[in-house]
């Protein structure tokens, strides 16, 4: 794999997270991401992320007669997202512990 998904506000991670709950087209993705992450992605950023993810086989387009083509996450995309979420969760756990906040359950690294 060329690049690891990293920061939680990376458009690629946000798109994968959104698609983890079901296939969506561009506008539905943008609204969902704004709802769960509070991040308003511009059209350029959103389609940049979709391009990268499709190139890497992490998402795939579904057949559609409409210009609003939906995308779904692939098995490889789920693995990659799980990896990214675990990585972020470890940071969250460490930060929470060090700040004296309640920690969350994690698999070992």
């Amino acid at each position: 794999m060329a690049e690891k998904l990293g920061r939680n506000n990376e458009p690629t991670v946000l798109v994968l997270t959104s698609l983890a709950s079901g296939a969506k087209h561009g506008h539905a993705l943008a609204r969902d991401i704004e709802q769960f992450a509070g991040v308003r992605l511009g059209p350029g950023s959103l389609y940049g992320a979709i391009t990268r993810l499709e190139e890497r086989g992490l998402i795939e387009p579904l057949p559609s007669d409409d210009r609003r083509r939906p995308y779904e996450i692939t098995a490889a995309g789920r693995v990659e997202l799980a990896d990214a979420v675990q990585s972020m969760a470890r940071v969250v756990a460490a930060g929470s512990t060090r700040l004296g906040l309640r920690t969350i359950g994690l698999r070992p690294a």
Partner: peptide, 26 residues
Amino acid sequence: ELLALVEDMSDDGGPTRSQRRSLLLA
């Protein structure tokens, strides 16, 4: 697809300046 998204995101006034900037940069 991108144009359909821009239509969906825009109000009746067409794409905003920040959307145009996003498209230019991307």
